[in-house]
Structure formats: structure tokens, C-alpha cells
Write a protein that binds this DNA or RNA. Structure first.
Lengths: 252, 252
DNA sequence: TCATGTCACCGGACTAGACCACCGCCCCCA
DNA sequence: TGGGGGCGGTGGTCTAGTCCGGTGACATGA
């Protein structure tokens, strides 16, 4: 509470443009309304004792993140909060929270298995390598929503099986193992329910589900291979679309 | 063929950093293998008579596009071609091309209708306003893949109905009307086939389909509302996942 | 009253340097 | 022969300017 006007620490090893980006990011999150202007580049440069190029670097990063908006000849403004420009690597709990529903889950099994050749290929491990397998029935607002089968190489999460199934896997990975997922890929398709899943999900045995397979990575290391079956009558995905890349033309 | 070493035109109204970005982008597309280095920032600056900051601006843009990769202390390298970081706003034809299949299509109907209240809401037009409706059966490698129902406000595409159904709608919009789609949003869900669609798609009447609804925009103007039903046995979506945004924390 | 032109201020572009940390290689010394 | 240190090149950061074109408010004049 002493530093009521936090500034840039020129002695810090953190680059100034990142310090300023953080500072502005906090200003935006804390107080500024969407549409309201931030100080001009020249003002910020003077106020924090930086050159204008450095200020621009910080602002550019926030513009790239979609949090600010430049208007030529006018100023820089706090952007309207928009939908994520990309599907995020979030777990079920967070996904449901964003949809305004309450997530809960029932663990159906939690065990150490040995990777089949198919699983080994999906998880980038050796065939036969120990793998932690977690099968959960996922509820949203108390009603079955999905069945999720998660697989993790055991060498990345020693002791996990013994510790029992965590409430939020992603959070547990971060807190206990320091594993923060940084990117992933996911396939999406439609299918009819597997016979054994139907009663768990509370749908007919030929009910329709949205099947997703996810591979998640922390930097270059694959951490997770998960398949999920979501009840088609309760779940819908929403994705933003970016402009198509301009085809490469020789003589434009 | 005269300008064998195209350079930067300092008199052009196109900013130099964009000219250089284009130049480098073409170099990457034309010849350089993934993993091979591009000239150093200092070399490029000298070669094209630019300051290093300008060169960095061009390179930064390509890095943001995922086409280059910086390695500290070593250099800048052509990135491994990766999947699009985002689902692109491409039509069926382009989508199939990317999947290595040949697209064709049969027009089932192409007419002027008046917007129902539901359609009006989806298309951001007035209820009753004239709308062009195009229903097509889409084939990939000659086999039915999807049924697509596209709606466009007629005021944006006068004369389209009279001209007949174009081969590639998106290209036709760009060439004839100067309408270039810049962004969109799409919902995805699983469902069973509508009874009338099943025989067209060549699947059972209770067959499973992936249903997508797309709204496409050119800048701020909505241009298209399209619903599609894809055969679940032939179509799979693939999406990349970005790292979850750090939740906003007041006192980190 | 209303149109027009001026002007201050904004972001956009660009320069020509500076110093730093990092990386890989090569040479020299143990 | 093997290990370590030095060195040159690289990207990362940062400065202190300049000039340009777009914007909007305000003053001025018809």
C-alpha cells in the first residue's frame, strides 16, 4: 500500500515493455471501462520515463491480445471484451463455469495401465509404458454431460494414482507437478454412443454424442491424451473463424 | 523477369515493413525449407537499406503469423508448417482441397425468399426482407459429404439469383461484389439427420451428422448465415487449442 | 447560422545508433 | 586428448529523435 503509483523499475531484469504491459493490463482489468481511452503514447512515455518505441511495444502486445484498440489520429482505447479468439485449453470444470453451469464429476476408474500400441501412438509414449488412466462421468448442474477418459504418462505424474483423483486435474498438475499446459489439439466428430456409456449419460443406447479427442502439451512434451463423449442434446461448441489466409500469388 | 532482386520501394505508399514482410513471405513460400535460417536482422537491414527496427517489425509480423521462429543467440528460422492456428473462414471447396479431396456440388435450390423471423434474427436483417437461399448437396471425391443451406441478404448481392449458382460462392462474392469475408463464428453440434436429408446424403434416416451453423461477416456487415449437416462417418473437425488465459487476479 | 479552414494532438512509420544476454565454435592449455 | 574460455554473431531491449497523415475541436468568415 506504499507504492500507490507503481512505476517501471529500471533495474529489474524484467524488460520495461513487459513491465508496462503488465501495468496497463492491470489498469484495464481494474478500472477502465471498455471504450474508454488510455493515455497517449507520448504521455505514457513521459510519465514512466520510457521512449515512445518502448511504450508502443507494450501497447502493441495488448492490441495483439485484443485488449486494446488503436484508432488512428484519435487514441488508444480499451477494447470491448470479446469472445476468445480461439478455443482454450481448459478442463471441463472451467468450461462449464464459462457456460454458467456448475461442474461436478464422478470418478468411474482411476488406475495404472500399460499403454496399448494405439494409446502409445496417441500419447507419444512407448508401447507398454505405464500410463495413468482416469475415467470420469462429468455433470453440469447435476445432470450427466459427458464421459471423459484421460491418459497421462505415469513418469510425468509419479504418485498421482496413489494420491487419488483430484477435483480439477489441470489445476492439480500445475500445483503438484508444475505442469502447465501450453497448447493442444483436438478433433471433433459426431457419433452414436458406445453401448456402455449410454446408461451413464442417461441417454438411449443409440443416442448421439459429440466425440472429442484431445492431445495436450506442456511446451514440447505431451502430457495428456483424452477422449470425451458429450451428450449432443446438451452440448454445443462455438468457434470463431478467422479470415482465410490470402493464397500465395506470384504477381499480385 | 527484369527485377530479379526485388527490393523495397522507398517512394511507395506501402510501409516498408509491410513491403519487407511480403518479400520475406514470398522467399519462405518460394524456396526456403522449414528449419532453414533467414538472413540476420542486421544483414537484412543493410541489404534493403532499412533500419534494424523496421526489419524487426516485418519479422515480428511473420513470427506472429507462425511462419518464422526466433532462436535467441542463433538466428531466425523458417517455422515448420503447422496446422492453422485457427479454423479458417473457408468455403467447402477450399476445405476439401486442404483435406486432399476434390469438391463438387449439386444445387438443390436457388431462390429468393422472404426472411422468417428466425432467419431474420440469424442473418441480422428485417423480418420479411428478401433473402437469397442456396441449398447445395456437397460431394467430396464424388461421394455425398454434406448438405449446405446458405442465406444472404439480397440487397448485398443484387442479381445473384438471376446469374445462377456460382461454383465457388466465396470467390464469386469477392470477384463480383467485392465482398471479402473477414471473420465469422460457427457453432458445432451432433445430431441425427433430418429425414429429408438422409437419402441425399446416402445415409440411414437416423444417421448421425455434424451440424454447423455459421455467420460470416465482411467487416461489420453480416453477409451469410449458413447451416450445414456433414456426414459423421466422413467428416471430422480439427481445432488447435491455445493456452488458457490467465485468470485475472487482483493481487498476484 | 453555417460552412470552412486552421491547428493541436493522436497514432504510424522510420532512423541510427547503443548495450545486453545468449549461443556455438574454435583455439589454447592442462 | 579433453575441457574451458574467449570471441564473434545473433536476437532482445531501449533510446531520442523526425516526419507523416488522420481526427476533431475551435475559430473565423461568408
Amino acid at each position: 500500500m506504499s507504492d500507490e503509483a507503481p512505476g517501471i523499475d529500471p533495474t529489474s531484469s524484467v524488460p520495461k515493455h513487459l513491465q508496462l504491459k503488465d501495468l496497463l493490463g492491470r489498469m484495464i482489468a481494474d478500472g477502465l471501462q471498455p471504450g474508454s481511452p488510455i493515455p497517449s503514447e507520448r504521455d505514457l512515455a513521459e510519465q514512466y520515463g520510457l521512449s515512445r518505441m518502448t511504450v508502443r511495444q507494450a501497447i502493441n502486445a495488448l492490441v495483439a491480445d485484443g485488449r486494446l484498440e488503436r484508432r488512428l489520429g484519435r487514441g488508444t482505447y480499451v477494447a470491448q471484451p470479446k469472445m476468445d479468439v480461439q478455443i482454450r485449453l481448459v478442463g471441463f470444470t472451467e468450461d462449464m463455469r464459462r457456460r454458467g453451469m456448475t461442474a461436478s464429476s464422478r470418478t468411474l476408474s482411476f488406475e495404472r495401465i500399460h499403454a496399448s500400441s494405439a494409446l502409445a501412438a496417441h500419447l507419444e509414449v512407448e508401447s507398454g509404458e505405464p500410463v495413468v488412466r482416469l475415467v470420469r462421468l462429468r455433470y453440469a448442474d447435476g445432470i450427466p454431460m459427458a464421459i471423459e477418459r484421460t491418459h497421462l504418462p505415469e513418469r510425468l505424474v509419479p504418485g498421482l494414482v496413489e494420491a487419488g483423483a483430484p477435483e480439477s486435474l489441470y489445476r492439480y498438475l500445475a500445483e503438484e507437478y508444475g505442469i502447465v499446459l501450453t497448447w493442444g489439439e483436438q478433433s471433433i466428430e459426431a457419433a452414436t454412443t458406445a453401448a456402455e456409456d449410454a446408461p451413464l449419460l442417461g441417454i438411449r443406447s443409440d443416442g448421439v454424442v459429440l466425440v472429442m479427442a484431445r492431445r495436450s502439451f506442456a511446451e514440447d512434451v505431451q502430457v495428456e491424451y483424452a477422449t470425451s463423449a458429450y451428450r449432443a442434446d446438451r452440448y454445443q461448441l462455438w468457434v470463431p473463424l478467422a479470415q482465410a489466409a490470402r493464397p500465395i500469388v506470384r504477381n499480385p
